[in-house]
């Protein structure tokens, strides 16, 4: 009797463990969470991108001007 109870408990524990292991997030859930996180940080990212663009604008313009001059 005790053995049966222990076996039943073991099976129950294993089942519960397997169910808990199967609780991983799907790809859609992960993508949705990433989108949410990205939306929260979008303002900071936009400001950072604008600052980078402003700092690189002179170099980009000079390079483009050189390309235009070379093409002409």
């Amino acid at each position: 009797m005790k053995t049966n109870i222990l076996r039943f408990s073991a099976v129950l524990l294993v089942s519960a463990t397997l169910f808990s292991c199967g609780g991983g997030k799907t790809a859609e859930e992960i993508q949705a969470e990433a989108q949410t996180k990205f939306g929260e940080a979008s303002v900071e990212l936009a400001e950072e991108a604008a600052a980078d663009c402003e700092s690189n604008m002179a170099a980009y313009t000079a390079a483009a001007l050189d390309s235009i001059k070379m093409a002409n």
Partner: peptide, 17 residues
Amino acid sequence: QDALCKTQALAAAQAEW
């Protein structure tokens, strides 16, 4: 954003040219 920045830089260079 970098591509947009480069596009703006190209437009500015063309205008300057």
